[in-house]
């Protein structure tokens, strides 16, 4: 695995393992919806192609197997002057955002994450492509993190 991207030194803060549950639920729900659409479509228009269920099932299974690893791959690190974020196994992505560049911080909570007591933190800079969204933070953690980031951004304020 020498070819993988890895940054030297330092530990990553990981997100809550409960995110796995929420990801599981959303995968199962979307698979079910898709299966229903396929079924209805077959009943109405097509001859019944039962084998169509096989790829759907396989994709869903692979997703379910990968989800825990994918959740474990999400991490962030608060360095002295910037926030480092990583995610992805197959498609790895690392982002570094200087605190002074943060324009605003969002906390989002869907119905499912509310039940699991999870929040999603989103950072917005002047560049649309920054795209840093940390899912699966415990609610209290998310708020502490947000306040901390806002305070850090305030001390390192820069223009555009």
């Amino acid at each position: 695995m020498a070819e993988r991207l890895e940054l030297p030194d330092g530990d990553w803060q990981r997100v809550s393992p409960r995110l796995v549950v929420s990801e599981y639920v959303s995968t199962v729900v979307s698979t079910a919806v898709f299966a229903i659409v396929v079924t209805v479509g077959m009943l109405l228009f097509w001859p019944p192609l039962v084998w169509l269920y096989i790829p759907v099932g396989v994709i869903a299974l692979i997703a379910l197997v990968i989800i825990p690893r994918r959740v474990r791959s999400i991490g962030y690190r608060l360095r002295d002057d910037d926030l480092l974020f990583r995610r992805g196994i197959l498609y790895q992505r690392f982002v570094a955002v200087p605190y002074g560049r943060m324009q605003l911080v969002d906390i989002n909570r869907g119905p499912l994450s509310r039940m699991l007591n999870l929040s999603e933190l989103k950072f917005v800079t002047a560049a649309a492509s920054t795209g840093v969204t940390i899912p699966g933070l415990r609610e209290a953690d998310a708020e502490t993190l947000r306040d901390r980031l806002v305070a850090l951004a305030e001390t390192r304020r820069a223009g555009l």
Partner: peptide, 21 residues
């Protein structure tokens, strides 16, 4: 340099076997 907002690094399955990013 003073105008940079953030920086990211990516690697997908195509680049990985080649040791690229």
């Amino acid at each position: 340099q003073p105008r940079l907002q953030s920086v990211s690094m990516h690697q997908g399955p195509l680049l990985r076997p080649l040791g690229l990013a």
